[in-house]
Simulated scan of single mutants.
Amino acid sequence: MNEAVVKSPLRISVVFLWIGFVCAISFMEAWLKFQAPGITLSLGLGIGRLVFGALNKVEIVFALSLLISIISDREIKTTASKILMLPLLILLTQSVWLLPALDARAELYMLNHPPMSSNLHVYYVVAEVIKVCGLFAYGLQLFRSRTL
């Protein structure tokens, strides 16, 4: 008989919570807030900066908890851990480059100095999709089949 076995309940919980946070914020809240009555571009951008800043901090906590668990379990060189490196690199890129650049653009809009057009939002969305796919692939790797 085959059954699914969870290698690490903590990691499986964290990875799927992380996916849920990103999907709820990046793929729902980000555009829905602009549908609310009375929300101006400046107000929406201000809300977005606050929410995405908080999401980034939560994601960093999730990433660190996964890394600490992987290191403490001495599973750094596993296939699953190697898969996790892509979402971690994306999070790092978002934290040090994309989010600060998007915040600066939002600040300019809020000061009535619209910046030149940019593909930063497209890069961010593509990065989010790739990150979620990588996290999902990592989460699936935390399950394995066992024959009894």
Rank of each mutant, 00 (worst) to 15 (best):
M116F: 02
M85S: 03
P87L: 11
A63S: 11
V122F: 02
S95T: 11
Q94F: 07
V126I: 14
H121Q: 10
R74Y: 00
L67W: 08
S65D: 12
S65T: 01
N112E: 12
V125L: 01
M85H: 15
L111R: 10
V122R: 04
Y124H: 14
W97V: 00
T93G: 03
L89F: 00
P114T: 00
L89D: 00
L89G: 06
L99V: 13
V132T: 01
I68T: 13
K82Y: 06
L102F: 08
I130C: 13
D73I: 03
I83C: 15
N112F: 08
H121L: 10
E107Q: 15
V96A: 05
L111M: 15
V129W: 01
M110Q: 15
W97A: 15
K77D: 15
L108Q: 13
L99S: 12
A63V: 14
L89V: 03
V122H: 05
S81D: 07
C133N: 11
K77F: 04
K131T: 00
S95D: 00
S118C: 01
D73W: 14
M116Q: 14
S117M: 07
D73C: 13
H113S: 13
L99Y: 03
I71C: 10
S118A: 12
A101M: 13
S95E: 15
I71V: 06
P87C: 15
Y109N: 02
M85R: 11
L92V: 11
E128Q: 12
S95C: 13
I90E: 06
Q94G: 09
A63T: 09
I130K: 06
A80F: 10
I83T: 08
V126R: 01
Y109T: 05
K82I: 01
S69N: 02
I70C: 14
V129G: 00
Q94C: 05
I68A: 11
Y124A: 04
Y123W: 15
H113G: 09
L98C: 04
K82E: 11
I71K: 07
L92K: 01
I83D: 04
L88I: 10
A106M: 11
A127H: 14
H113M: 10
I90W: 11
S69A: 14
L89Y: 01
E107D: 13
A80K: 07
E128D: 05
L89C: 00
S95I: 11
Y124F: 07
L102C: 00
D103E: 14
L88V: 09
S81N: 12
L66T: 03
D73L: 15
E107P: 07
D103W: 05
H113I: 11
A104K: 08
R74C: 14
L64G: 13
S81W: 07
I83L: 13
K82G: 03
V129D: 09
V122L: 11
A104N: 03
L92W: 07
L88H: 04
M116L: 07
Y109M: 07
L91S: 03
L111Q: 06
D103T: 13
S117T: 10
S81V: 14
V129N: 01
D73N: 10
I70A: 12
I130H: 01
T78W: 00
P114H: 08
I90N: 07
A127K: 07
A104T: 02
V122C: 02
A106E: 05
A104R: 08
L98N: 02
E75N: 14
D103A: 05
S117R: 08
C133F: 09
S117D: 03
A80Q: 10
S118D: 09
D73F: 11
T79E: 06
I76T: 15
F62P: 04
L98E: 04
